[in-house]
Structures are given as structure tokens and as C-alpha cells.
Nucleic acid binder design. Structure first.
Length: 729
DNA sequence: ATGGACAATGTTTTT
DNA sequence: CATTGTCCAT
């Protein structure tokens, strides 16, 4: 144990052996933060005599939780019984099931994923007679989710415009629907936990006393709900140990608020603050580029990253003719680097901003015959057949779950179409029960009261399915998840439904078998554990270790990983930074941090790739290099030549490095204004925000920055050359 | 009730 | 361009 601590650098040691009280560890990339966290847990247990039962450690992903658990086990030379180590969401789900008697739902609640949540928003809109066209479900859902992340309940939802008013009503209805389905969405897991700890002093005290030590990974990614519940949980002992890096905060859009770091310092003014700056991952050449990029981010706590790994190879910059040539360059480079036999395919990662960009890369890899694995994207749990099977099991587990019922009631088709289902729902509403419960009742007793409100043919179909469901529910507690799943699949002839003999059908059945293998891991009867696992596992978590293949993944998915060789593709304005961030300065900073995260994944070699043209809407168009490339001093970069065929270049493209002042070379970027076009008081029109009034404007960096107030939207800061603003007369 | 043809619509990141 | 939804014919 002690020799393990001696291997740590002084800052790491200080963090691991920090005494009681709040601790904030600001950990640069590759600075060994997981090591610090796990060593601290081992230290608390092994040296300080803390019982594992009294320790809580939370992460954001299952993968991180798993890795931490393994490393703690290694450090201690055995498992730590009773240690609570898991994701925020899983930990909250467990707590809520245990304390469900204090809450307005049952302990067998189901957890709705993104798709289910969207379905539910649609239903709420329909219930309120609101038009989906006018109020886009994803937009409304996003507003609801943001409110939940900030712990705002429907009645407290601030209304400043008609749209807010709509959201407030939908939000309210949405929550009612969740409760009547005995379901929670992802946000609810955090919201209800925070609410419970806030409102119920005895529950709060119970857990606050229990958790003598709380450790948090990726603290910069916490949202308000998470921060609040951490505060409640640590209210008794105040031993809150958080590790994070504001420079790697890339989930603002999901409610993450890196200002929690500032809040922490304010709320725990006595906190010890420890900076981890030594990097054990990358060469200095890579770190220098990383720092050049991130230093453009204002108002940050400056960290000086250094390594003892030596200078290493210069970072390579490559300008491709178009996105197809980008992919070609990646494939060629991998081929030549592996040809010497010193590197394996699993050493390579190719990163991009948007999932759509993976397509061309995949094609290039396929054509070159290089194996690759794609992280995320074609979500396993998002596949129709997987969702179907899970919906069946969820329905058995909780017949009130209407979203799942809707999904499977006619898949495979069994003569229950939209109209029949509607009559079932109507009747259920009249009888003040749920459609699922009514269905069960009809299965039990075909002559059920009032059932004759439905015509005989439809009724027969419903009775049939109800009977099936009734039989499943009767055995659900005595069968293992695997047995239950097999029973359902067989009863509904699911295989013949999806496996139509085509290749695609075979694939679908293969996926079901894959799910079956997962179910086989659960030995105990009962569906809770299995369903919770499939609800809270993300596709990122399915990324396996050391197969002999290159990895293709988004920059977001890359966080927390490392690779000897990294390619970052699509370094063009509009892609990275993404065009949807242009008019929001905060979002632009986040794009920059995303780039930084990508850079710092590389251990030995880094390739930065941009192109002159990019395919959008099916047409190839000229694009500007990413403005983030301007942040990097030339002498930190090497310019690569095409590895195989020379590509057509247009005139001056060759010497771009000396003058890639985008505004000159790329015609698509409007010329910089020399004087102000917008004056305070002017009325303007924006394609998405409508009418607004100019409050202020100024010239900056050769562009005009305009502050506009839009009715119902609020104040927006826009870059004149990018925002499609029209001046109204 | 189901499947096909056509049209519109819209492109970020995901626990 | 490619996916998603809508309408229509069976």
C-alpha cells in the first residue's frame, strides 16, 4: 500500500492523502486522475480504516465505474465489500427504488430512454391538442430536460413568452404521464433524488451519515441537480473529494455546468485545491499544441502541462482537397505506419465532430480492407428489434408502461391496429385504469365489464394478447431474465417476424441473440436488475478493448480515452467549430475545448486534417479551415504531403501554411466589414429567432459583433458575417 | 392493416 | 443526400 503512494508524484500524493474536509483536484489531461481517485479509495480503506460501506464514488459512464472498480480491487488485493461505486444515474436509481415509499411512484419503475421520452412528449402534445409542427417535440423535450437539470418543477417554470407557456403545460402533462406509466426519465433519476434529499430530512440524514467520504469523477460535467444532491449527501461529514478539469467541459448542452467548480469553491471555502499538471500520456510536441489551443479560452485557470516523455514528433497538419481525400489520407497513413510492423491497428483512432462524418471514413476503410470499429453511432440499444424485446420485458415487469405497450401491441401484427388500440385507451380512460391493466383484465375475463364497448373482432384480438400478457406476468418473478425472454420470444414467434431470410433479417436476429447473451449474465429471477442495466448502459460502454482494428469515434466519445496515434478530421469552420455554435460565444468556447480534448488523446503522434471542400446537402462546397488552427504557431506543425496520388490543387493551395487567412482564400466567407452596419435601435430579422432589435454593435477582429434582443428569445450576441440578419426598414 | 411511393425536411454532441 | 413522415392503394 505505502509503496503505491510513493510511486505517485508530490501533487498526486497530496491529493491521495489529503485529510478530512472538501478537496478540489484540478487534473489536466493524462495527469493520472483515475489513479488518484482509485488510490485515494484504497488509501481510505487500507490506511485510514474507513469501511467501504461508508464510501461513495460516482462517475458518469459505466465504463469509468468499471475501470475504477477494477483498479481499486487490484490496489487492495481483493474486492471492497459494500463500496458504492457507480454512475450518477445508476446510484440514484438504486436509492430511489429503496426509498420509493416516500415518493409518488412504485419501486418497480421503468427508466425511459431518449426515444421513449420523445414519444411521451408527443403524447403530451397530443393530449393538449398542440400541433407537433408548431412545437417540435425535440425542442420541447430539450426545454423540459434543461428545466429538470436546473431543478425547476413544472409549476415553477418561468413563463416569459407564449412558447414558455406551452412548454410549461407540456412539461406538467409529461410528468403526469411519467407517473401514470410508473416511469422515470434520465433526468428524473437525478431530480427526484435531489428532491427527496431536500424535502425529507430523515432520508437525507440517513445517507449523509452513511457516506463519510464522497468522491466524484469528471466534476466539471455535473449539472445543478447533481451538484445539489452531492451537497446534500455530503452535508454531514463534508468530505467531498472532487476531480475535474474545466478545460475538458464539453457537455454544456446536456446541462453540465462547469461553474459548479466555482460554486464548489464558494460553498466550500475551506477546500484544499490541488493542481495536477504533469502529463504521463503525450509527448511535449502534442502538449504544446494543446496548450496553444486552450490558452485562447479566456477566464480559465491556467495550467502548465509538462511531460518527461520528451519532445516527440511534430504534430502533422494535412490539407486535403475534400472530405473524401481526408479519408484517403487517413487510410494511407495508417497503412504505411503499420507496414513497418511496429504499430498495430488498435493503436489508431480517427476522430470527428459529427457522426455523419464517419460514413466516408468507413467507406475508405472498407475499400482498403482495414478493419475498424465504430463507437456509438448505430446504437445497439436503439435498434428496433432490441427495443421491441426490451419493451416486451418492460411491459411484463410493469404493465402500466404505456410507451412499451404501444411499441409491442402490434409487433408482430396481431390485428390490433391504431383504431383498436385507441378504443382500448379510451375505454381505459373511462374506467380510470391504464390500458395495460385493462388488457390484463380482459385476458383474465373476456366478459370483463364494459368490454363490449369494443367491437367483437377487435375485442377478440385484445383478449388474446391480454391472455398472453397475463400468463407472462404470472411467472415473471419465478423466471430468470433469460427464461422470461425466451418465453416471450417463442410465444409471439418473434424470430419469424424479424428474420425474413434476407441478410438484414439475419442481422436483426443476431442482435436479439446478442441481447440474449447479456440476459444470460443475470442469474436471479426477476427483471429489475436486467432492465436497469439495459436502460442505463450507453453505447459508449460497449467499446471493447484490444481487438485488432482502428477506432472511429466522435470527439465527445473520445473523452477519457487515449491512443498512440490520433487523427482529427474535418477541421473546418462549420464542422469544428460546428455551425450551430457560431452565434453563441459560450458554445464556441466549448467547441474549442472539444478540439483540445481530441488533441490530448494522442500519446505519440497527432494528425490534424482539414479540407478545401466538403460535402453538404449532397453537394461539395468550398469551406474555410477551422479558425482554431489559427491558434497554433506554425513552428509547432509539419505540413504533410499526400501519401499516394497527387491531388488537383488550385493555384496557391500549396503554400497555404504561410497565408491561410481564410477570408482571402476561401470565397464562401464574406469579406470583413470595415464599418458598422448595425446601429442600436435598428429592427432586424433572423431566420430562426424572428424579429429583434439591435441593442449594441461593435467591430472586433475584422468582424461586427451585434447584440440583438429577440422577442421571446432574449438577448443574443451574433457575428454579423455569419448570422443571416436582415435589416428591416 | 400493411406496404409502397412520394414529399418534405433537416442535419451535434448523449448519461 | 438520406432519412423520416405522409398519403394512398391494395
Amino acid at each position: 500500500m505505502m509503496h503505491l503512494i510513493e510511486k505517485l508524484n508530490p501533487q498526486q500524493q497530496q491529493a491521495v492523502t489529503a485529510g478530512l474536509g472538501p478537496v478540489l483536484v484540478m487534473a489536466g489531461p493524462g495527469s493520472g486522475k483515475t489513479r488518484v481517485l482509485t488510490s485515494r479509495i484504497a488509501y481510505l480503506i487500507g490506511e485510514m480504516g474507513v469501511r467501504p460501506y461508508n464510501i461513495l464514488a460516482v462517475t458518469f459512464t459505466n465504463k469509468a465505474a468499471r475501470e475504477m472498480a477494477n483498479r481499486v480491487t487490484d490496489l487492495l488485493g481483493g474486492v471492497a465489500p459494500g463500496l458504492t461505486l457507480g454512475t450518477f444515474h445508476a446510484t440514484c436509481a438504486r436509492l430511489l427504488r429503496r426509498e420509493a415509499q416516500h415518493l409518488p411512484f412504485d419501486d418497480n419503475f421503468v427508466i425511459y430512454d431518449q426515444d421513449d421520452q420523445l414519444d411521451l412528449v408527443k403524447r403530451a402534445l397530443a393530449d393538449l391538442n398542440l400541433d407537433e409542427k408548431r412545437h417540435r417535440p425535440p425542442v420541447v423535450h430539450n426545454a423540459i430536460s434543461n428545466a429538470k437539470n436546473e431543478l425547476i418543477l413544472p409549476d415553477a417554470y418561468p413563463v416569459q413568452s407564449y412558447l414558455d407557456e406551452v412548454v410549461r403545460r407540456v412539461y406538467k402533462r409529461y410528468q403526469e404521464l411519467l407517473l401514470s406509466n410508473n416511469a422515470l426519465d434520465f433526468d428524473d433519476l437525478l431530480l427526484w433524488t435531489a428532491y427527496l434529499l431536500e424535502e425529507n430530512a430523515s432520508v437525507r440524514e440517513k445517507y449523509a451519515r452513511r457516506f463519510e467520504h464522497i468522491l466524484v469523477d469528471e466534476f466539471q460535467d455535473t449539472n445543478q441537480a447533481q451538484y445539489r444532491l452531492l451537497r446534500h449527501l455530503s452535508s454531514f461529514h463534508r468530505n467531498l473529494f472532487v476531480v475535474g478539469d474545466a478545460d475538458q467541459s464539453i457537455y454544456r448542452w446536456r446541462g453540465a455546468d462547469y461553474r459548479n467548480v466555482l460554486r464548489f469553491q464558494k460553498d466550500f471555502a475551506d477546500a484544499q485545491v490541488i493542481l495536477l499538471e504533469q502529463n504521463y500520456r503525450s509527448t511535449q510536441a502534442i502538449l504544446d499544441v494543446a496548450m496553444a489551443v486552450i490558452d485562447q479560452n479566456p477566464q480559465r485557470i491556467r495550467k502548465h502541462l509538462f511531460t518527461e516523455r520528451g519532445a516527440g514528433q511534430k504534430v502533422v497538419l494535412f490539407e486535403a482537397y475534400d472530405d473524401r481525400k481526408e479519408a484517403e489520407f487517413v487510410v494511407d497513413t495508417i497503412r504505411s505506419l503499420t507496414a513497418r510492423g511496429r504499430m498495430g491497428l488498435s493503436d489508431f483512432a480517427v476522430m470527428y465532430r459529427t457522426n455523419a462524418q464517419s460514413r466516408l471514413l468507413e467507406e475508405a476503410f472498407l475499400q482498403a480492407g482495414i478493419p475498424y470499429k465504430l463507437v456509438g453511432a448505430q446504437r445497439f440499444y436503439g435498434r428496433r428489434e432490441i427495443k421491441d424485446v426490451i419493451a416486451y420485458l418492460r411491459l411484463v415487469h410493469n404493465p402500466n408502461d404505456e410507451i412499451s405497450l404501444t411499441r409491442v401491441i402490434n409487433a408482430p401484427t396481431r390485428g390490433i391496429g391504431e383504431k383498436t388500440f385507441l378504443s382500448l385507451r379510451t375505454l381505459a380512460l373511462r374506467l380510470e385504469t391504464s390500458p395495460g391493466a385493462l388488457l390484463l383484465e380482459m385476458g383474465r375475463n373476456p366478459e370483463a365489464p364494459a368490454a363490449d364497448a369494443i367491437n367483437s373482432r377487435a375485442r377478440a384480438a385484445l383478449v388474446n394478447f391480454g391472455d398472453l400478457l397475463r400468463n407472462w406476468v404470472a411467472v415473471k418473478d419465478s423466471l430468470t431474465p433469460l427464461a422470461m425472454m425466451e418465453r416471450v420470444l417463442e410465444d409471439v414467434h418473434y424470430r419469424s417476424y424479424i428474420d425474413d431470410g434476407t441478410d438484414e433479417g439475419r442481422d436483426r436476429w443476431e442482435n436479439v441473440l446478442e441481447l440474449r447473451r447479456l440476459a444470460a449474465e443475470f442469474q436471479q429471477p426477476g427483471l429489475d436488475a436486467f432492465l436497469e442495466r439495459v436502460a442505463l448502459v450507453s453505447d459508449q460502454d460497449t467499446l471493447e478493448g484490444t481487438t485488432n482494428a482502428a477506432t472511429l469515434l466522435t470527439l465527445h466519445a473520445a473523452k477519457g480515452l487515449e491512443f498512440p496515434v490520433v487523427f482529427i478530421t474535418g477541421l473546418n469552420d462549420g464542422t469544428l467549430p460546428h455551425s450551430r455554435s457560431f452565434d453563441d460565444p459560450e458554445a464556441m468556447l466549448e467547441e474549442c475545448r472539444l478540439f483540445y480534448v481530441g488533441i490530448t488523446r494522442a500519446k505519440d503522434r497527432l494528425y490534424l486534417i482539414f479540407s478545401q471542400n466538403r460535402t453538404a446537402y449532397g453537394f461539395s462546397e468550398p469551406v474555410a479551415p477551422s479558425r482554431f488552427l489559427d491558434y497554433i504557431p506554425y513552428d509547432l506543425l509539419d505540413e504533410a504531403q499526400p501519401t499516394r496520388s497527387r491531388q488537383p490543387r488550385k493555384g496557391q493551395g500549396e503554400r497555404r501554411l504561410e497565408r491561410w487567412d481564410a477570408a482571402e482564400v476561401i470565397p464562401s466567407r464574406p469579406a470583413a466589414p470595415v464599418e458598422r452596419r448595425y446601429q442600436p435601435g435598428m429592427r432586424v430579422h433572423h431566420p430562426s429567432w424572428g424579429e429583434g432589435m439591435v441593442l449594441n454593435s461593435k467591430l472586433q477582429d475584422g468582424d461586427e459583433i451585434v447584440d440583438v434582443h429577440f422577442a421571446g428569445v432574449g438577448l443574443k450576441r451574433l457575428v454579423a458575417s455569419l448570422a443571416r440578419l436582415e435589416i428591416k426598414v
